[in-house]
Write a protein that binds this DNA or RNA. Structure first.
Length: 593
RNA sequence: GUCCCGGUAGCUCAGCUGAAUAGAGCACCUGCCUUCUAAGCAGGCGGUCAUUGGUUUGAAUCCAAUCCGGGACACCA
């Protein structure tokens, strides 16, 4: 249920006060919700839970409560009615007028004052052997958005990224480049660096498959052939050489990684992803080993005869996990333990959020348990923000099968669609070329971000290309369009409108005001639930309410001067709230469209 | 095999700390541009909330079982 604004807590308090003062009743939780449209009133108190302990009929209780609420809070309530077990309360127009007068010109409406809490958010975690894809985009949009939502709620934020820049998968693209590229570089080919490297990662796969087929044809078992294929052997040798610090391998690795980072930077810049600190696995992969030592001393870990180190988590309902290989090298989880400690030592955050896919739920459970057993300072504050995979109508995306949606491609497609629709509607007049490009990017990228953020992060989602480029309905474009319409009015009527308004509200004016009032509560809810989808739903609801209002009432040609001021205040505030809401999702807002 | 997550309209999703007739968007149908941008508005069609049982004054929401779908449990990351 979407939370109601601050006003609902006022109502709850007022009701609780009366329950205590008049009935000496303290235990119950007061349930307040918005009144259903079919009934008279703004907010509804559900009485059922008080009926039994207070031994009163719902009607009698409702009427008593209603009268007392009106008597004790004349500035807040103007009327009430009781139907069955529901006490419907009408909020006084003067309350809404005062609210609008106070907040309509507040650009930071919804944002909370700073609190003394520092939260680290790790997101993106790319591999440096291939370009970013749709799944990364969900990750990036989520991470960035969660950071903004925390900021809006007063937190101090540190954004980090871990680059998975070493390992056999990196060597695969390196070896393929050595064998087949003939010295090709991003500069010589004009191909974006991450894509170029990704091409050789794919090339490795096809070559590997070819060699396996040849070996199998020669009578080798498929599993053996996979390992024995010359190109795989070469990749493994390269990993050994890399770990040994062989200069030519290191040089190649540095060169190819730099191409990838240049490519990533371009994409990150385009989508607005930024980081306060980037960690590199190549830096941190040795860190965990000292912790393994400590763990052995403490008896948290146990060593097998072959030298491998394990932790037994069966008592915690999990498995026995390896933390160090028999050859002494670190595994995935070991690196993460080391990284957790380094992050803590560097930033001392109160909480550390990892935005990582839900396929790693088990991994993070293990990580947290190990950190606790080792008594690491950061142990209690590791939180895995687990998000669902992005699936295509054809099923799950798989890099090897060529069913990934490339990040740069989809961004371009969205841009093109925005351009196509804008031209189709002849809305390009009065824009410079630069302005148009900016507009297409605002619409295209906004559409994609909204599409990926409007779904609850925890849930896996379906990416339907046709639906994603739709610019109607539950989309960013719809909200951006409402914003642009308001800006058009404000340009015409002047932004700096002052004045105190008297008089009442028409239904749509009131509905818009009520919706605006919810925004601070929406931001709080999005923060506690770590879900931008809450903000998305709200922004859409607000835009929809505004559009109804816009169609029904004229602002410029308002019936009276008072109405004009009231409506301009509503417009002003709606624009602010729409902009702020879209902002925490990383979506820009156009002045015209 | 064990564990985790999901199943709501033709499709994509809200609602899930229990409360009035289960909500949006897309698709489909009907109206609305001489008035601040029709990327819009108003309305219609469409659901035994997977199934069964239980708790409750009241269940899409809580509990149990079953069925279906996805994921995890690597000396990969």
């Amino acid at each position: 249920m979407l939370k109601m604004g601050e006003i609902s807590s006022q109502i709850k308090k007022a009701v609780a006060r009366i329950l205590i003062d008049e009935y000496d009743f303290k235990e119950g939780v007061v349930l307040v919700k918005e009144t259903e449209p079919a009934f008279e009133g703004d907010y509804t108190v559900v009485l059922f839970s008080f009926v039994k302990p207070l031994k009163k009929s719902p009607e009698a209780l409702g009427n008593e409560l209603g009268q007392k609420l009106l008597a004790t809070n004349p500035a807040l309530f103007s009327a009430y009615n009781v139907i069955k077990g529901f006490l419907n309360l009408t909020i006084a127009d003067s309350y809404w007028l005062e609210f609008l007068h106070r907040e309509h010109d507040n650009p930071g409406f919804g944002h909370k004052p700073r609190i003394d809490k520092k939260v680290m958010i790790e997101y993106s975690s790319p591999n440096t052997n291939k370009p970013l894809h749709l799944g990364h985009l969900r990750n990036n949009f989520l991470g960035w958005s969660i950071a903004e939502i925390f900021k809006a709620n007063g937190y101090d934020i540190v954004k980090t990224c871990i680059a998975n820049d070493r390992g056999i998968h990196i060597c695969k693209s390196m070896i393929a480049w050595q064998l087949f590229a003939d010295g090709a570089t991003p500069a010589s080919t004009g191909i974006k660096g991450d894509h170029l490297v990704g091409d050789y990662y794919v090339r490795f796969s096809t070559e590997h498959k070819k060699q396996i087929a040849e070996l199998v044809a020669g009578g080798m078992a498929p599993e053996t052939a996979e390992k024995e294929a010359p190109i795989m052997k070469a990749a493994q040798q390269m990993l050994v050489d890399w770990e040994a610090g062989k200069p030519d391998v290191i040089a190649l690795w540095k060169m190819m990684n730099s191409w990838v980072y240049t490519g990533f930077d371009a994409t990150y810049k385009r989508i607005g992803s930024d980081f306060d600190k980037t960690y590199y696995e190549s830096d941190t992969y040795l860190l965990g080993k000292s912790l393994v030592e400590q763990g052995l001393e403490k008896g948290v870990f146990e060593q097998e005869a072959d030298g491998s180190v394990w932790i037994d988590l069966t008592a915690d309902g999990l498995d026995r996990k390896i933390v160090q290989r028999r050859d002494g090298t670190a595994v995935y989880i070991t690196q993460d333990i080391g990284l957790a400690v380094r992050k803590y030592e560097e930033f001392h955050c109160d909480e550390s959020i990892y935005v990582v896919g839900d396929e790693q739920n088990y991994h993070f459970k293990v990580l947290k348990l190990i950190a606790q057993k080792l008594g690491l300072p950061a142990a209690g504050d590791i939180f895995h923000l687990s998000y669902g995979m992005v699936e295509l109508p054809s099923g799950r995306m798989k890099a090897r099968e060529g069913t990934v949606v490339d990040a740069d491609n989809i961004l371009d497609e969205m841009f093109d669609e925005a351009e196509r629709k804008t031209r189709e509607q002849g809305k390009t007049e009065g824009f410079s070329l630069t302005e148009l490009e900016e507009l297409y990017e605002t619409i295209g990228q906004g559409g994609l971000k909204f599409f990926l953020l409007r779904v609850d992060p925890k849930k896996k989602m379906l990416f339907n290309p046709e639906e994603s480029i739709d610019l109607h309905g539950y989309t960013a474009t719809f909200i951006q369009y409402a914003y642009a319409r308001i800006r058009s009015i404000l340009r015409k009527e002047g932004d700096a409108l002052k004045g105190t308004v008297t008089g009442g509200f028409l239904p749509l004016e009131k509905m818009l005001t009520k919706t605006l009032e919810k925004f601070p509560a929406v931001l709080s809810q999005a923060c506690t639930e770590m879900s931008p989808s809450v903000v998305a739903a709200f922004a859409f609801e607000l835009a929809k309410t505004f559009n109804s209002f816009y169609a029904e009432h004229s602002v410029s040609g308002a019936e009276t001067p008072d109405k004009k001021i009231l409506r301009l205040q509503l417009c002003r505030m709606t624009a602010t709230v729409l902009r702020n809401a879209l902002h925490v999702m990383g979506i820009k807002v156009p002045e015209r469209m």
